[in-house]
Each structure stands twice: as structure tokens, then as C-alpha cells.
Design a protein around this nucleic acid. Structure first.
Length: 561
RNA sequence: CGGGGUGUGGCGCAGCCUGGUAGCGCGCUCCGUUCGGGUCGGAGAGGCCCCCAGUUCGAAUCUGGGCACCCCGACCA
């Protein structure tokens, strides 16, 4: 079927929306693909939804290819389900809770581990395993801060799949199958996406892999090695910092007065030493106790790493908590004499450094781990510009990126709390071993725009473009030209292409501008000249010049590679 | 949640400081013109000025309180 643009709801805008920052946000709105309803709430207009569904179809095909079985679970779910896994409380800040007319508590699903695991209770035997179940379903998350158009929203469709295996080896196979499927999905969607080891965060899994699509805007930072043998999410990246140059060691810590010195940079300058030979003390509260996290003076604390090291959520300590625990102001805090738990970054394992003296306005020189204080030694520093690759020592590069997919090895967390078990050959009961795998078509779409655009508009990858061919009828009132253009469109459609025919009563400039904005892979222009020699002009969206070709050979330009 | 900003026809904005019954560009409708990169001319339609309260003879404008949205920091597909 040929879609006539004169009847299509495709409200293009001449100017960027005033509140847009991200390129994908601006272009998706301008091209008439999406419209905002509220903060983080978006309507996909007809052409935008076509793109969304094309992404969905690619995902569906690849999920089916690894044996996934599509189903559908509801968005509205009983609160009880979430209470049993504990997420009713631990996910309190993202869950949208509500009651029905008779006062029963419900949760709008933010993901579907609970629901799917409740069904997995019917997998009673090892003979029922393994299985992969998936669906495309709306997720509701009370995001603290939606932003960037489709980049971060409160309601979105996610393909979430769940694997059920009898043991860890089975999970490994399911996990690997998903990795393969995800690589093919992004490849087919024309998206550059890098898989990296990631933080499993609040999902409670053991291992997770993130898919990051480098782009002009985004909320993640992708760290890659110049030699290509390392890639990680910044949150867990293990870049190697430059070596610190420590001053002459001392027999014992020596107090020095450091009036008004509150930052490590100032401290290093004041003492005339390498900033890397100072320490930065970050008092946090975890499980109700004040914990001191120590990183090198030129580093920043990586909260995600600290959280996984402590196995508990952390928050910065309040000023009064700090005074009570240390007896000093921030800026003069240190591990020596502190009676609580100390977590020391690996960079401070060896050598003597300067630390706060827990006496406002004073620091200690020559502080040494083991001799002067005890601590748990963990990697808790945030990598930064200048770090070297942990594998080969090459330079690391940092890119902003969009997280387009995330896969987790869940283990038995959900099957245990929801009692999903099976019997093995010996009639021994075991919890089912699970994995969960998410991908957001909306983000894939936004990332594709971030990666594919020019000053005129979107440049869609062919596989997910709203239409394969955009036929422009420059009739200018000529019925003959209009008929010819319609014929070309019909012929392409008959050949199996998705065709948009611009049959509007508009001037050429406007049609060209809108076509560039919308970004279909191929543009076919039919004008008066076409009547003379039965030829049309074609142009790939990524090109800058038309090619004049015989009408009959247009189809050759639409061949899929 | 903390910080900053914005709310005025469909879109982008001015007016607000210095109260006096709302304006510009684009878009939209009609007529004519033009017709391969957003033509040109003419005539029109369209606004609870975010909401509530207050001050005042009079509030888009001043005051107070809400709400919404955007951007920057802690979370996630």
C-alpha cells in the first residue's frame, strides 16, 4: 500500500522545539514522529510508531531465532507480588503504586521478573527446562528526572525476556544466546552498540552486560581502549591511573597545620607534593553506620563500586553525622583514629599519603595503611581522562552513550523468593536459575537518530526507516505528473517496498525540506522533466546529488544489500 | 529531592521593570500568483495571557500561594 502524505498525520515543524536539547529530541519532534504529553510521557505519531514497530520486528525475529516464546503480561500487577520479592520497598522510588476501587494495592509494572517468575512455578520438572519467555510490554517507572525526549522516559515499551534453566551452566548458555541475539539486533538496526561489563545495580544479579550506543547525548559513559581490547561502562571501568610520587616516608604520621585547606588540590599545593599522594575522604552512611571511603586525592569516588563493595545502598553523611563520627569538619577527615569501617581504594594500598587528622585545620603526613589504620581494600575510584587500559596500557577514551540494552544473570533471587522450583532426575527440588534481558525499542530509535543525522534532518538506517522510499510528486498542478508519480509509487509498493508519496499541494522546496527531515533512505523525485524522457531523479538520503535514471530502473536503487 | 530557568493563538517569541482591555514571525483559511530547495500579493480566522487568591477604579504586567514544563547534579531499557 502506498501511503499518501496528503492524508498522513505528519506534523513537521520548521523550528526546533524550544525545550529540546538532544539532537534526537529535536529531530524526532520536528519530523513529526513524536509529541510530548507530559514529563517523560510521549506519543508516537503514525510515522514514529512505524519506526518503533520496525525495531520491534527485528527484535522479535532475533528472539524467536534463539527459541524465545512471545507472550504478554499485564502492566497492572498486585502489590503482593512485589512485596514477596522485597522490591515493593527497595524499588519504592521508581514504582508507581495505586489502589483499585475497593482499596486493593497494585503496582504498575516497572519490569516483569515478579510476574514471569510466578508463572515459572508451573515449570515443575527438569524436563520443562530450559525456556525463554519474552514480551513487548509497557513499563512504568517514576523516574526522578525524565529528559532528552525519548532518552529517558517514565513510560516505555521494553522487550524483556527471561530465561529459565536448571543450573548455572544452562544460564550461561541462555545468556550467551542472548548476547548473540543482541549483537545481531543492533547490527540489523544499523546501530553502533558496544557490549560492556556493567553494574548489576538494583536487579540483584551476579553478572550483567550493558549495550551502550555512543552518541552526542546520553546518560552513560563508555570507556574504550585505543587498541580495542577494553570496553566498560564508566561506573565499573578499571582504568589504571598514573603512578603517584610519594614523598620520603616517615617513621610515624606527623601532624601539620593546614589552615583553610579543604580540597586535595589545595592541600597538594600547600604542602608542595603530588596531589596523588594525598587522600580524599568521603564519609557515607550505609545501613545506618558511618563508613569512611578513601580515594586518592586526584580521584573521585565511584558510588556504584562502593555500593557493590559494601553490599548496601549508601548516601552522603550529613554534617552533624560527620561531626559526631570524626569530631572534625569535612576537609580534615581521615582514617587514623576513626573507629568505624574504612574502605580504602587500591591506589592507596602502598606508600604513605597525607590524610585529614580529624582535627579541623590539620592533616597527617606519612599515613600508611596497615601501620596506622586498618581498612578493606577495594577498587572504588572512578576512572577518568588520562587513565590507561588495564589490559594493554593503551590510552582510554570516554564517550557519552545511550544504554540501549542490558542483560542480567539473575540466578535464583526471584525463583527463591517466589518459590519457583523444579525436581531433578533424583526428585530433588531446586530453584530455577534465571536470567533477564531487556532492550528498549524507543531508545534504539533515539540512538539511531543520534548516530544518523545531518544538518537537514534524520538519516535512518534502512532497516528501521519509517518508509523505504519517499516519492516526491512535483506536479505543480499537472495531473500528468501526479499520475506518473503515483504510478512510480505503486510500482515500488508492488515490489514490496514501503512507500510514502508526497502528493500534497505544496511547493517543491517544502517537499524537499520535509523529506530531508523525515530521512527515508531513498528519495524519488518525479517532475515535469519526467514526462519528457520517462526518467526520475533518485537520491539516497546520505548522498548530496540526485541521479537521473530511467523510470523503470528505480527499483534497482531499492535493493537491500 | 537540591540548584537554575520558563509558562502569552498550533509552533517560535516580544510586551511585564515603569499597571490602562494583547502584538510580531511562521503556520492555518479564502482569492489571485508562482511551481525542482520553505514563491509573492491581498483578505481573514484563531488567545481562560498556566491556576487560585490579594492589591488597585483598572492586572499579562505588582504581591502571595500553587501547578506544569525544561536544563544541571544522585537512579535506569
Amino acid at each position: 500500500m502506498v501511503q499518501r502524505q496528503s492524508t498522513l498525520f505528519l506534523p513537521t515543524l520548521r523550528e526546533d522545539p524550544a525545550d529540546a536539547e538532544a539532537v534526537s529530541h529535536k529531530l524526532l519532534v520536528r519530523a513529526g514522529l513524536i509529541r510530548q504529553v507530559g514529563a517523560g510521557l510521549w506519543t508516537y505519531l503514525p510515522a514514529g510508531w512505524r519506526v518503533h514497530e520496525k525495531v520491534v520486528q527485528v527484535v522479535r525475529e532475533e528472539m524467536d531465532a534463539i527459541g524465545g516464546q512471545e507472550m504478554s503480561m499485564p502492566v497492572l500487577t498486585p502489590a503482593d507480588l512485589w512485596q514477596r520479592t522485597g522490591r515493593y520497598d527497595t524499588w519504592d522510588d521508581v514504582l508507581i503504586k495505586l489502589q483499585d476501587g475497593s482499596g486493593r494495592d497494585f503496582v504498575l509494572a516497572a519490569t516483569h521478573e515478579e510476574t514471569v517468575t510466578s508463572h515459572a512455578r508451573e515449570m515443575r520438572s527438569y524436563r520443562d527446562l530450559p525456556k525463554i519467555l519474552y514480551h513487548f510490554q509497557t513499563k512504568e517507572r517514576d523516574e526522578p528526572r525524565p529528559r532528552g525526549g525519548l532518552l529517558r522516559v517514565r513510560e516505555f515499551v521494553m522487550k524483556d525476556s527471561y530465561s529459565f534453566d536448571r543450573d548455572a551452566e544452562g544460564l550461561d548458555r541462555s545468556f550467551l544466546a542472548h548476547k548473540g541475539a543482541y549483537d545481531r539486533i543492533f547490527e540489523r538496526c544499523g546501530l553502533e552498540a558496544v557490549s560492556v561489563q556493567a553494574e548489576s545495580g538494583m536487579m540483584g544479579g551476579r553478572e550483567s552486560v550493558d549495550y551502550l550506543a555512543p552518541s552526542g547525548s546520553g546518560e552513560n559513559t563508555l570507556v574504550t581502549c585505543e587498541n580495542g581490547d577494553y570496553a566498560a561502562d564508566l561506573e565499573i571501568a578499571r582504568g589504571v591511573p598514573r603512578a603517584a610520587s610519594f614523598p620520603e616516608p616517615l617513621e610515624a604520621p606527623a601532624e601539620v597545620e593546614t589552615p583553610g585547606i579543604e580540597t586535595c588540590e589545595a592541600l597538594g599545593g600547600f604542602l608542595g607534593i603530588d596531589v596523588a599522594a594525598t587522600s580524599k575522604a568521603m564519609p557515607v552512611v550505609a545501613d545506618g553506620h558511618v563508613v569512611l571511603a578513601l580515594v586518592r586525592g586526584d580521584d573521585r569516588l565511584d558510588e556504584a563500586k562502593l555500593v557493590s563493595a559494601l553490599g548496601a545502598l549508601v548516601r552522603p553523611a550529613q554534617p552533624d553525622e560527620i561531626r559526631e563520627a570524626f569530631g572534625a569538619e569535612p576537609g580534615s577527615l581521615g582514617p587514623v583514629g576513626f573507629r568505624g569501617r574504612v574502605v580504602l581504594d587500591e591506589t592507596l594500598r602502598e606508600g604513605q599519603f597525607v590524610a585529614g587528622a580529624n582535627r579541623t585545620g590539620y592533616h597527617l603526613r606519612g599515613v600508611e595503611h596497615g601501620r596506622d589504620f586498618e581498612a578493606e581494600i577495594v577498587d572504588i575510584r572512578l576512572s577518568h581522562e588520562g587513565d590507561r587500559c588495564p589490559r594493554c596500557g593503551g590510552a582510554l577514551a570516554f564517550h557519552t552513550a545511550i544504554e540501549v540494552g542490558h542483560i542480567f544473570k539473575l540466578g535464583t533471587k526471584y525463583s527463591v523468593s517466589l518459590d519457583a522450583t523444579y525436581l531433578d532426575e533424583e526428585s530433588v527440588e531446586h530453584p530455577i536459575v534465571m536470567g533477564s534481558y531487556g532492550i528498549g525499542p524507543g531508545r534504539v530509535l533515539a540512538a539511531a537518530v543520534e548516530q544518523g543525522h545531518d544538518e537537514r534532518g534524520i538519516v535512518w538506517p534502512a532497516s528501521i526507516a519509517p518508509y523505504d522510499v519517499h516519492v516526491l510528486s512535483l506536479a505543480g498542478g499537472s495531473d500528468e505528473v501526479a499520475a506518473l508519480a503515483a504510478g512510480v509509487a505503486e510500482a515500488l509498493s508492488a515490489a514490496g517496498r514501503d512507500v510514502l508519496l508526497d502528493d500534497r499541494d505544496a511547493r517543491p522546496g517544502e517537499k524537499f525540506a520535509d523529506a530531508d527531515l523525515l530521512g527515508c533512505p531513498l528519495r524519488v523525485t518525479v517532475g515535469k522533466k519526467s514526462l519528457d524522457d520517462d526518467s526520475v531523479d533518485v537520491r539516497r538520503r546520505s548522498d548530496t546529488q540526485d541521479a537521473r535514471v530511467p523510470r523503470a530502473s528505480v527499483i534497482d536503487w531499492t535493493k537491500e544489500d
